[in-house]
């Protein structure tokens, strides 16, 4: 995939009106096709940073460019066609009386034609497997389904970049899995994904890149395999890489971090090769 720069964040500082300095000079570039995870403690500036990606917050210093547009000069509702931002709590978004209307609402506000609206609604319903729920009232759905509807609302605007703010928080394993599979599918379709999360397993499993935020600065920006290597340092920021990574590091694995059990088994078996070979030959 071409290394097209979609979001460029340049020396961005942000101070909230109440005087809290949330960002202190962040620089980063998000390329087309990235699956980027932003991690960090509460209050480290993750969400503040992400809200700069679609102009919800305008930097107090520095600049943010999204596909060449400076966010300070654009309205958020216009930016919503470029960057889709899915909030953590779907209930902050839903208010119409059927799922179908809910998805169409944003399109109608942006004055799409009727055919275009119908077309897009159908597409989105199919993509998120919501066809069966189209006439349901959003509030009568389960949390997982409501979250899918919220994603659908954003997806209908067909943005290239998606920002998910803690999509799995408060979900059970199955719900988290279903929302992550949706995100994964968007990524394979060519969308660029930014995800804010506390779940390191999720980062290890899905992300191609992890940005660690601390006190308003991005201190690590690397693929998870590299970022999780120095896990003592991460521990200081109260971030814990998945247990399998910790285990591998403790057992003396020190090239790059191991991210899943499969890699771990391969590595382990390669280390105790003689025995394994003996066993297999005996068998």
């Amino acid at each position: 995939m071409a290394n097209k720069e979609l979001i460029v964040v340049q020396d961005v500082c942000y101070t909230y009106p109440n005087g809290v300095e949330a960002l202190r000079g962040v620089n980063l570039v998000i390329n087309k096709g990235d699956f980027c995870a932003i991690v960090g403690q509460n209050g480290s500036g993750k969400t503040t940073l992400a809200k700069h990606f679609n102009g919800l917050l305008k930097p107090t210093q520095g600049n943010v460019w999204v596909e060449g547009y400076n966010t300070t000069q654009c309205r958020v509702s216009e930016m919503s066609r470029l960057v889709g931002y899915v909030f953590q709590n779907p209930d902050d978004m839903l208010f119409c009386s059927t799922v179908e209307e809910e998805i169409a609402f944003g399109l109608r506000m942006l004055r799409f034609t009727k055919e275009e609206i119908n077309h897009r609604v159908e597409n989105v319903l199919e993509l998120l497997k919501l066809q069966g729920l189209r006439t349901q009232h959003p509030f009568a759905l389960s949390l997982g389904d409501r979250q899918r509807v919220a994603v659908a609302c954003v997806l209908s605007l067909a943005p290239e970049i998606f920002v998910f703010d803690e999509p799995t928080t408060g979900q059970d394993h199955l719900g988290a899995l279903s929302i992550m599979s949706v995100i994964q599918e968007l990524h394979t379709k060519g969308c660029t994904i930014v995800i804010i999360t506390h779940d390191m397993r999720l980062v290890a499993e899905y992300a191609s890149r992890v940005i660690v935020m601390n006190r308003g600065q991005s201190i690590i920006d690397a693929p998870p395999a590299v970022a999780f290597k120095n896990y003592n340092f991460l521990e200081e920021l109260s971030l814990r890489p998945p247990q399998v990574t910790q285990l591998a590091t403790l057992l003396g694995h020190d090239e790059h971090a191991i991210l899943n059990t499969k890699d771990f088994c391969n590595w382990l078996s390669s280390r105790i090769k003689p025995n394994v070979q003996n066993q297999t030959s005996e068998a």
Binding site: K51, N54, L56, R75, V76, S77, S80, R81, G84, Y85, V86, F87, N89, D92, M93, F105, G106, L107, M109, L110, C153, V154, L157
Partner: peptide, 17 residues
């Protein structure tokens, strides 16, 4: 806080300012 979040969420789905 919640009111502010909701306004932001609605902006993100295209509801004009």
């Amino acid at each position: 806080n919640r009111a502010e979040l909701i306004q932001q969420a609605q902006l993100c789905r295209g509801v004009a300012d």
